[in-house]
């Protein structure tokens, strides 16, 4: 038990110290993409809001919050990748007397912390654009579950890849398509009928829906939270099993 706690604290603290070292450039990089989306899509599609009586930005900001939450949480994969294939610091954790769960939980919590920072940046950007976003318990729960799921997915994928190049491929094939299709930039209803059930299989679609409902003061849909929690449980289990397999 003590090994587990010590291991978790060491893994998490290391990531936080690294984050602190790069805090300002990290926050700046978090703000660039949403700003671009806000300027490009907000200006271009401002008149075509899918929400009756509300501007497009009110639709977009919660989607960007869900997307940033996902990409920042998943970004822990890059840190692990660097630790494995470039710095070889991952060997320090492999050679330490800590259970695999401590490593996974430490990295997942680091991913959640990064995601929280990312969402805070989005909310700050929204304030700059004078877009009021309601942040309630449902918003926070949806963001937390979303971050947990994608941080766990990031740890899992970082453990099974064999190189930096594999990591980039996964980003291109998993995260980027989800960013665009997961109900972040446009409503799922506007997709062709055959595509909609597929898009609802993506965890990000549920995260965007839950965060948007919360931020607009609409009733929460329990299915969104169940889907996110289920995805998180599956990805966490996969991450746990993959750490041992990364030994060879």
């Amino acid at each position: 038990m003590l090994n587990g706690w010590n291991g978790f604290a060491a893994v998490y603290l290391r990531e936080m110290r690294l984050l602190r070292r790069r805090f300002f450039r990290h926050v700046a990089s978090m703000a660039v993409l949403p700003l671009l989306y806000l300027v490009a899509f907000g200006a271009a599609m401002g008149a075509h809001s899918p929400l009756p009586g509300r501007g497009y930005l009110e639709f977009l900001i919660p989607g960007l919050a869900a997307m940033t939450c996902m990409t920042q949480a998943y970004g822990i994969a890059t840190e692990i990748n660097v630790a494995r294939f470039y710095l070889y610091v991952f060997e320090e954790f492999q050679a330490a007397p800590i259970p695999n769960a401590a490593f996974v939980l430490g990295e997942v919590c680091a991913g959640i912390t990064r995601a929280a920072l990312g969402v805070a940046v989005i909310l700050a950007v929204a304030l700059v654009f004078s877009i009021g976003i309601r942040v309630d318990a449902c918003f926070l729960l949806a963001a937390a579950l979303n971050a947990f799921a994608f941080a766990a997915l990031g740890v899992f994928l970082a453990m099974i890849v064999k190189s930096h190049a594999d990591q980039s491929l996964l980003m291109s094939f998993v995260i980027t398509p989800m960013s665009f299709l997961g109900g972040t930039l446009f409503p799922v209803d506007s997709l062709p009928g055959w595509a909609q059930p597929l898009v609802w299989l993506l965890p990000l679609t549920h995260a965007a829906d839950a965060i948007r409902n919360a931020s607009l003061g609409l009733p929460a849909r329990p299915m969104d939270f169940i889907a996110l929690a289920g995805a998180g449980a599956v990805f966490f289990a996969l991450a746990l099993s993959s750490v041992g397999r990364a030994r060879d």
Partner: peptide, 19 residues
């Protein structure tokens, strides 16, 4: 395999925590 972005003391501290 040292953490280049951490200080020498921090590198040792993380190891000590792991153990």
């Amino acid at each position: 395999n040292v953490d280049n972005d951490l200080s020498l003391a921090e590198n040792l501290d993380i190891h000590g925590r792991l153990f």
